[in-house]
Amino acid sequence: MPDLTAHHYGITVADLDRAVDFYTETFDLDVLDRFEVAGEAFSEAVAVDDATGSFAHLDAGDARVELVEYDPEGDVRTPGTVNQPGAKHLGLAVSDLDGFHGSLPEDVETLSEPRTTESGTRILFLRDPEGNLVEVVEA
């Protein structure tokens, strides 16, 4: 088997511009690229008839955060909690979790204050504007 490395962490969003603003402003991620993909091969690859994807790739260090807005949109799905089968979350690291938490805009929904787990790891979960869970861990 060939050597594998992480390339990107993908999140489907309903409003690409809003999501890009959130991740660039909240996490200070830089936009690496914005592009659209369409056509028969793309539609077949994602198994969505007549799909067009508007993408933004953001720099998250060793991998990219890929935000994608599809046309046509899929069924509306309510994001679940982290303990539900099939749940997903994006994990990002910061060096000062309390400082990061203190810098969050008031409208950013957090699940709790920063917490130290039994293993000694400091974590904070928040939701992006689409309701996706983002775990911020103190590196």
Rank of each mutant, 00 (worst) to 15 (best):
S43H: 09
D49R: 10
N83M: 02
A60L: 01
L29C: 09
F27A: 07
A45L: 10
D30L: 12
V37W: 07
D33R: 08
S43C: 13
D30E: 15
T78C: 00
R64H: 10
E66Q: 06
Q84N: 10
D15E: 15
H57C: 06
D30G: 14
D30H: 13
L29P: 08
A38F: 02
L67S: 04
E36L: 02
L29N: 07
T24I: 12
F42T: 04
D17G: 13
G61W: 01
Y23M: 14
G39R: 09
V68C: 11
R64S: 12
A60D: 03
E69G: 11
P72S: 05
H57F: 10
E69W: 10
V68L: 09
R18I: 12
A14W: 14
R77K: 05
G80I: 00
Y70A: 09
R18G: 14
R34Q: 14
E36Q: 08
D50S: 08
V13W: 11
L32I: 14
A60Q: 01
V48R: 15
Y70S: 09
E36M: 05
G39K: 04
V65T: 07
G80P: 00
V48C: 13
V37P: 00
G61A: 06
A41N: 11
E40Q: 14
V13Y: 11
R64F: 06
V82T: 01
G86V: 02
D75I: 09
V31P: 04
S43F: 11
P85M: 03
L29A: 05
G86C: 02
V37T: 10
A87W: 11
D71V: 06
V48A: 10
P85C: 06
G39Y: 05
G74M: 04
L58N: 00
D75Y: 06
A45C: 09
R77I: 07
A87Q: 09
V48K: 13
G39C: 01
S54Y: 05
V46D: 12
A41E: 13
A51W: 04
I11E: 09
V13F: 12
V76I: 02
D17P: 15
N83R: 06
A63Q: 01
L58K: 14
E36T: 08
G61H: 02
D21A: 15
G86A: 05
D28M: 07
E66H: 02
T12C: 14
T26Q: 08
V20G: 12
V13M: 13
R77Q: 02
P85K: 01
V20H: 13
G86R: 03
L29I: 07
R64P: 00
D30V: 06
A19G: 12
V68W: 05
V46Q: 11
D28Q: 15
Y23I: 14
D75T: 12
V76Q: 11
L58V: 10
L58D: 03
A56N: 07
G86Q: 02
E66S: 06
S54P: 04
A56L: 05
A56D: 03
L67T: 02
Y70G: 08
G53S: 12
Y23Q: 13
N83E: 03
H57E: 05
R77S: 01
D33C: 00
F42M: 07
